[in-house]
Each structure stands twice: as C-alpha cells, then as structure tokens.
Design a protein around this nucleic acid. Structure first.
Lengths: 312, 312
DNA sequence: CTGAAAGCGCTTACAG
DNA sequence: CTGAAAGCGCTTACAG
C-alpha cells in the first residue's frame, strides 16, 4: 500500500517512512509482470498501424507516448502492412490480453469484426477518415473530415486555374473519402474527374500511377492530386524523371503533410498527427478509468489545414 | 502441454485431438499476462531510441519486428529524446521487468551504467558507431564503421575538387566518430577541418549551423558535410533560402540515407538500418535461448555504402 | 499416459 | 493500525 499510493491514511507517517527506507536500502523494484497479472492490467497501449515507416505514423506515436508515458502506459507497435491478414492477426493478438487499449487504423476490418475487442473489455480508438456513428460500445474514433479536406484542396486547384485535375488513389484506406470530396467539387465545377488507382500508399505506386497519367498525350492533366503525400512524392519523382518541371509543366498536391513534404515544397493537406495521437491516448486513458467503459462511443473531429507550397 | 507444444510425445494423438477440439469450441485464449508472469518472460523486446520521428529509426524498428514477431516477441518503443534523463528512465523501466531484451541507442550512458541490465539477466544490443571491446557480459553491439564511412565521404568530396569542406555536428551521439574520420582525411590531404556544432540531430540545428557557415564571407566552404541526413537537409534548406544553388554554389552531403535523402538528391552514407534491426533482433533472440547468456559479448560490423546523388 | 498439486509475486479483503 | 491469507491463470515437477 505504501509503495503504490502516495497517501495512505491508515498507515502512520513513521511506519510509512520505515517501509520506504527499507525498500530503498534493499533496492526493491516491484515485479511488473506480477502486477500486470494480478491487477489484470498490462499497462500497455497498442498502436496498430499499416507501417511505421510511413512518415505519417511516427508523429502519431509520439503523440500517443506523450500522454501514455506520464499515465504509466507503455506503447506497443503492431504493423499490419494494411492487409486483411495483418489486421486479423492484430485483433487475435489483442484478444490474448497484450494491451489494455488500442489505437488503430483498420482498412479492412469493420465494426462487426472489431466488437470482439469491446466484448473483452478492450477499448478501441479508430483513426478514421470521416465521422462515425456513435454506438453503445466503447469504440471511439478520431478523424479529420477527409472528404471536406480533399474538396478544399480541389477547390484550391480550380481557383488556381486548373481544369484537368487527376487523382492518384490507393486501393484501400482513406482514398475513398478523399476521392469523394474531389469528385464532388469537380462535378460541381462541371469538370470531369479522372482517377488512377494503384495498390498501396507507396512511392512506387505513386510513380507508376504518374507514368500511366503521362502516357496520355491528349488532354493531359495539368494538376495531379495524390491521395497521400507518399503517393504525391512518388508522382513528383516520376514527373521530374520524365523531364517535366513542377509546377510549370504540372502541379502536384498531396495529403498528410509528412516532414518530407515541406522539404520538397509539396502543397498538401495537413493532418495534425501529433494531436490525433494525444486525443486518442487521452480517450483510451479515460476509458480505462473506473466506469470509463460505460459511456457510449464518440467520434472526435480535428481540423485540417491546406498548406500552400511551391508545387502548385 | 498440448496447447503450448507442437509435439507432445507423452500424449497420445487421440487425447491431443480431443483437447484441441474442446479448446477450439470454447474459444480458449491463453491469458498472456499469466504466462508472462509464470514463465518470467515478457515476450517483449524493447527498442530504446532517441526519437521515432527521426526517419532513420522506423526502418530499424521494421527490421526488429521482422525477426521478433515470428519468434513470438512484441516490440516496445521507448524514446529517450537523446537526453541523459531519458536514458536513465529507460534503464529504470527495463529493471522493472518490462522486456526480456533491449536494442538501444545510448548517447550518454556507458557500460558501467548499463551492466545493471546484464546483472538482471536482460541482454542488450547497442547500436554503436564503432567496434566495441567484447567483455564477458551479455552486452553485444552492431555498428557500421562511422569513422571510416565519414573518411570515405570526405575523400569523395576531395576527389570532386573540393578543398574548403566544413562539417556540421550535433553535440552527442555518433557525431564524434564521424568527425574523426573527416578530420583524419582532411589532415592527410593538408586541408583544414572546420566544424560547426549545434545541439541536436534536427533540421533546425542543421539550418542554424548552415547560417553561421554562410555568414563567413571570406573563404566560405564549397562543400558541407552534415553528420546526419536530418542535419544535411536542414542545411540544404538554409542554403536555398539564402539564394544558393545546390550543387553549383555549394555541395551538401549527409549520413544515414533516410527516405527523404533520395527524394532530395542528397549524396549520403547509407546505413543498412533494416539489417541492423534484424541482426540486433537475432542476437537478442539467441541470447534468450537456454544458455544464450553465457557466451561473451560480440561486436558485429555491417557495411556502409556511399550513395552519390545530385547534391555534389 | 493423465490427474492433482505447488508456486510464481503481487493485490486486496479480512481478522485481530 | 498491522499481520496473515486467499487467489489471479498459468507452468512444471510429481504421483499414481
């Protein structure tokens, strides 16, 4: 009791001091696994993401840590590679009691597959691309309005005089909502949306998509919207190696505002990844307080920002 | 026994099948914390690094995971911010039994402070910048020869005709060995080394150091060697915003080969961070096998590579 | 070949 | 105010 609590009303100060002194002399360290076991708390939060080498995620992890560490929680990283098997493995792993709560990006699993976590008493905060319906289960979400952000970016390109604007997408994840915002604005402006979809959120996918856009000699796009910065940077490289100058021959924009975007002058949508991390961690920490699992799931929105740089 | 082992000589196949069938029907999941507690194994490896948002580290983490996950180990991330207090907190945390083994970058703590881990039976693999003496304790290291790599890069700049070459350093960590290689080659060539040291491995530090280099109007350096890519990229930005063209007005090189280096055409030293991660994880996994703590500490060298791009 | 028992190091409810 | 006891869910050595 003395070792675990900063105040112990039933233990007199003298006894308390004697215990602390002895513990110090003996170099006593409480055994963490035993505490975890006995208290049925791992004191770990899991961060389930597609790939830590995608520069969007390290900032999110720092945001998580900044709240988790002072609250006594460790942070575990689980990479899914954005694949259904990886996501299923993550859920299984969580069901073994590896973490007390999860922050996760799930491209494939839907609420039905994720409710098992709630049933096991493991709160989940999803990183989402839109507002999610708020159910009775302890499944929360944090998001920026991806459709509205993509719409704002598309409006910006149109305002700059672009008419032939193409979009590069990946198969899964937030591409869908981002494409929706783009399509809506293009239609409203009487313009024809044009998509190239490749497999992943990787530079190779972005470069490959750009190549196929550049192959169309007639009515070639004057601006290209990458559904993520990594896609946009791949597209930039492909455009440059095809001898094009950015933004004179072709404008390129992205989504995320990863650190490299600033260095390369990429116009993009800023997602506040650190703040998404702190918000997600705070949500989990309060869920893990007594009674915290009872209130219904909430969907928290954060604001995006259009960052204008030299690529347009 | 049946659930934990793929072969159970003393249990007949029929009994084995009956057990597995029932476990499946009941949806039995072994309680991970209880196993950890009873077996005194956390089945977690800690990765103690300055900062996960430094793009060098996510690749290392993936290397770790690629070995740790199939071997049944989780990976915990602990950020020290490269500060002495952060490193001390990491050691304390490890002494509570949070992980079975550690891969770590320690800028400040030396062997005396780290032996406590070995005494508690926690093997450590250090990410180092040079060969380390091999003692009896289970403390291993992995490294590329930082001094030789910096020497090779300096020779390359001299071969390209540069004579006034300055180096940008950070206060702690691998800057020292990198500076040593640079200094040795400069002296051998009869050239005067010139250093600017700033606080951290950050773009701000790199930009600040570049500003102070550019302030010297007489005999200004024609080439700048950043002790890390992040420093070099900060220097590139500062040079560009001062109106200089790279490489015509000033050449810039770095160290690490982070993903952004390729995108920005930065000539740099490639460190095989994924391979450093797999090597470190394999070393830990074999240390954690029965008897693995007995053999003496080893220092493993991996090869660097000079990557020539447009910044020179 | 299979069942019953002990014990890992804590936390917490209880007895005195 | 403080000591002794129970029990968390496993693993492992032992009995039968």
């Amino acid at each position: 009791m003395v070792l675990n609590k900063s105040e112990t009303p039933s233990v007199p100060a003298a006894t308390r001091a004697r215990i602390l002194k002895l513990a110090g002399e003996l170099g006593y360290q409480p055994n963490h696994p035993a505490r975890m076991f006995r208290s049925a708390r791992t004191m770990a939060l899991a961060c389930v993401i597609p790939d830590i080498t995608n520069p969007f995620y390290p900032g999110l992890v720092r945001g998580l840590q900044s709240i988790a560490t002072p609250a006594g929680y460790d942070v575990l990283i689980f990479d899914t590679d954005g694949r259904p098997e990886g996501e299923a493995r993550a859920v299984n792993w969580l069901l073994q009691g590896r973490a007390d709560g999860v922050v996760g990006t799930f491209f494939h699993l839907r609420v039905p597959e994720l409710t098992v976590l709630a049933h096991q008493g493991i709160p989940l905060v999803r990183l989402e691309s839109q507002h999610k319906s708020e159910g009775p289960l302890p499944i929360d979400s944090v998001y920026i309005d991806n459709a509205e952000a993509a719409a704002a970016m598309t409006r910006f390109l149109i305002a700059r005089g672009h008419r032939r604007i193409a979009m590069i997408l990946a198969e899964f994840g937030p591409s869908k909502r981002r494409a929706l915002g783009y399509t809506t604005v293009m239609r409203e402006a009487g313009l024809a949306p044009e998509f190239v979809t490749d497999r992943a959120y990787s530079e190779e996918s972005g470069a490959r998509a750009m190549h196929s856009l550049l192959a169309r000699k007639r009515d070639r796009a004057t601006a290209v919207f990458g559904a993520s910065d990594v896609l946009a940077l791949g597209a930039m490289e492909a455009a440059r190696s095809a001898g094009l100058t950015i933004p004179d021959d072709i404008a390129i924009v992205g989504f995320d505002d990863i650190p490299a975007a600033r260095l390369l002058g990429l116009t993009t949508v800023r997602q506040p990844e650190f703040d998404l991390g702190t918000l997600a961690a705070n949500t989990l920490v309060s869920r893990l307080q007594p009674g915290g699992m009872e209130h219904p799931g909430k969907s928290h929105e954060l604001k995006f920002e259009i960052i204008k740089r030299s690529s347009v």
